[in-house]
Write a protein that binds this DNA or RNA. Structure first.
Lengths: 193, 193
DNA sequence: CCATTTAGTATCGAGTCGATACATATTGGC
DNA sequence: GCCAATATGTATCGACTCGATACTAAATGG
């Protein structure tokens, strides 16, 4: 259990294997409550997406899947009464997504929450190191693929804090005002500051 | 980019989201070379499994899937000429698996190797912290599920190093001699020392 | 105003995956 | 030795995944 301080054993292979196993567990967890892995990913996404990001297109970018696949997943969720679709008034090609009450009620049954339990058994420094390591890894990988980061306003180059008074922020990309509540959710347009 | 040293922001939610996204990318990578995610997992496993662990049963335990699912995945791989099955002489219920030359030749096309590239862009300390964090997380999660660890002899309580001379080790569980080569592969019976 | 782009749906085929049922082979108690 | 319990693996089903391709319809931009 002692940390190897001097002899870095070039254990990237091991790290890759652990990433693979982690992915496997997440996939397996995705069968909780009679749903499927992709459906859980969509549900989790919609629970966290802001009002500019609750569309099939944004979800497609988040999942890195194709439009067709995501469309099918959303149809299954709609059929199950977990997601509601509505037309976008401004752009009539577009669809707005939101969780129904039933969909939101399902979130506590997300099996990946058990990772939070596992995290709680790690000490704070290790947890923080894991968080930063994952962030760096994801960032490098997403950059290589041209993928979007889907972060918070806090870390976004388009964010203008308190531009119109306390708690009244602004997005310099979309040219709209942002409430504090808006900034607590992830955005498809987010770009690192 | 500055590390938050004093204000630990209880960002476990963020960590969970990153784990989910990582899993998504791995799944997506799993469509390389015309294979499927589960097939890549099996291929990677068989490339790393020792001679006590190259069976459908061990793969089932590794993947955390059901026997039926794994059986189907292996049939697809056999059909594609990437995996060869052979009867186990000692236990005629059992099947031994090995990669064919074609299967082994496919390994360099594994898209998850691109995470190694991403890792190479991180500094050594962060990489080491990520490795240890992932290990701790996986260990906690696997322990909660009763899952096996699938590690190396090096870390196994049944390992008896150099018991019969230099490079001639022994497994105290299976009661068999182990070569250096044996110890370089993962084992279904491994238990943390 | 019309070509291009964008948002999303429809359909196909191979595969996934849990569930259930099944066929054998081994093992343990007696 | 014998037979029940157990272990290893396959067969089949149904809903879903997912990339690929083709499609509809709405917005955009010279």
């Amino acid at each position: 259990m002692v940390s190897t301080q001097y002899c870095l054993p070039m254990n990237d292979d091991e790290t890759l294997a652990m990433i693979g196993r982690l992915a496997r567990i997440v996939t397996h967890d995705g069968h909780a409550a009679g749903l499927k892995p992709a459906q859980w990913e969509a549900l989790r996404y919609l629970a966290r997406a802001n009002r500019f990001s609750n569309t099939p297109g944004a979800l497609t970018a988040y999942l890195g899947a194709t439009k067709g696949t995501v469309s099918q997943t959303l149809m299954a969720l709609e059929r199950a009464g977990l997601v509601r679709k509505s037309a976008d008034a401004a752009d009539r090609r577009s669809v707005r997504l939101e969780l129904t009450a039933a969909g939101a009620a399902l979130l506590p049954q997300d099996e990946t929450l058990r990772f939070a339990e596992a995290l709680s058994r790690m000490d704070a420094a290790q947890r923080e190191a894991l968080n930063e390591g994952l962030a760096a890894l994801l960032k490098a990988r997403l950059a290589a693929d041209g993928g979007r980061t889907f972060g918070l306003c806090r870390d976004c180059r388009h964010f203008r804090r308190d531009m119109e008074g306390a708690g009244r922020h602004r997005c310099a990309l979309l040219h709209v005002p942002l409430s504090d509540e808006d900034t607590a959710r992830i955005c498809v347009e987010q770009e690192a500051a």
